[in-house]
Design a protein around this nucleic acid. Sequence first.
DNA 1: GACAAACTGCTACACATGTAGTATAATTTG
DNA 2: CAAATTATACTACATGTGTAGCAGTTTGTC
Lengths: 125, 125
Amino acid sequence: MNQKLPELSKAEWAVMKVIWKLNKTNVREVCEELEESQHWAYNTVRTMMERLHEKGYVSTKKVGSMYFYRPRVSRREVAIAAFDSFSEKVFDGAVGPIVSYLIDQDKLSESELAEIRRLLKTKEE
Amino acid sequence: MNQKLPELSKAEWAVMKVIWKLNKTNVREVCEELEESQHWAYNTVRTMMERLHEKGYVSTKKVGSMYFYRPRVSRREVAIAAFDSFSEKVFDGAVGPIVSYLIDQDKLSESELAEIRRLLKTKEE
DNA sequence: GACAAACTGCTACACATGTAGTATAATTTG
DNA sequence: CAAATTATACTACATGTGTAGCAGTTTGTC
């Protein structure tokens, strides 16, 4: 689970998110799913999926002559690693100010705020 | 202020953070400041600073035959843009779960939690 | 003023990333 | 089965990023 994978680029993230969503899929399906938002050529998506495979994010299985892909790591786990790396890069690891900023600038919905209040209560001793 | 600058790479962030810290500086000073953490060659730092200039993050002034650099944008502003881009890429813009995660996993110090509680109070109606 | 140290101007180069194209093989369809 | 469609195999190429090097100029020091 924790084998320190190479980081994902922006385009790789977009593709990987679809793979997480569809769970077991192929190039065409991912391509269709991204049609609206990115409209990339089939081969572009395929290149991304191959790179995700090389990087260890997806496994592939050849069924007949066709390939299927599925995630090898959970989205949560990858998102957390990405967040850690990002917060180190930008905030030197100090995430408190980020959260303060988000709350202060009303970037959170009412329900999210409620959830945060609830969590905070559980942290009270 | 809001001219949509190209994004910064990891190495550029490291250099830019020093420039923000020193405010008006030159290659040598930045190089020294980074000695411990990165130990890059002088020319490596210089390349970064030139790229930061091309990207619009710093202004340069030639005094005699030497260049001085200073930030053209605030760190806060750049950090916010980076955060927005990151949260879009990784969380599709939904930042609530990030915050929940941070609180839940005790990534925040007691004083940060206190600050968050305080902010939350101000948001209560 | 000669020499060394520091700085500038210009260039380089490998690997990553975005974005495919071409040629060929397999599959579906009339 | 022949043609059309769809996949795969392999390749490409511009731009970005990390990481400098070299040659020449300016400056500081004896």
